[in-house]
Amino acid sequence: MNYHWNWKIFWDLTPEGSGTYLHTLLVGLMWTLATALAAWVIALALGAVIGVLRTAPRKWAERFCNGYVELFRNIPLLVQMFLWFFVLPELLPKHLGDAIKQMPPPWASYVPAVLCLGFFTSARVAEQVRAGIQALPRGQRMAGTALGLTLPQTYRYVILPMTFRIILPPLTSEFLNIIKNSSVALTIGVIELTAAARAMQEFSFQVFEAFTGATVLYILTNIVVIYGMRWVERRLAIPGFIGPAIRTGGH
């Protein structure tokens, strides 16, 4: 192979004149994080609601939410991305659809990408929330109810605080997933980190350096996330608490 390595390429200016290649990658990283974080907010909020409704004593809510989870889990992410970007504006009332299509450049791609990743991940979060709630001893809900708490109060003050603690590790992986999955947004025009690396490679022909740079940035991001979540886990740890798995039935 006759490849000309050039690690200094990161400090070269891009032909667009917008700065160095490193700068291009960092801007890409910024868009990756902006997409992932905004989508994560949607995923957590929707996922919590859907996950809770799947365990609530309402048959119609349970059925609706099961359908929701299956829908978003079973369609490939890439297809969902296209549906949000190309198909949704056509299905909406004309003035709304046009308004979406005519949003100025990064936003016309960014908004559908965030919605897509948010909804996609919310189905996965909902599944974790449901599993977490069902892993708690049934007596907890009964104790809340017996004290006179309403069902929403029982969820808010008794069930969910424990649920989120025990599902913190799987939520961490979902958060890492959403960062990785945000690269799919490049297919609808978001210049996030992977797209930035591809642009760098196209202009500079330094394909290995470009994608090595992207890889290192993804890894650094993951390390930050993992340490961040460890910190959260430590902060939320309950002295003396061993976990719900050891509890057994008998009511």
Partner: peptide
């Protein structure tokens, strides 16, 4: 309201661990 006036104690205590 009624349940708030009826105390209940369970086999597995059911204190809120957090």
């Amino acid at each position: 309201k009624l349940r708030a006036r009826v105390g209940m104690v369970f086999q597995h205590f059911e204190l809120f661990p957090h």
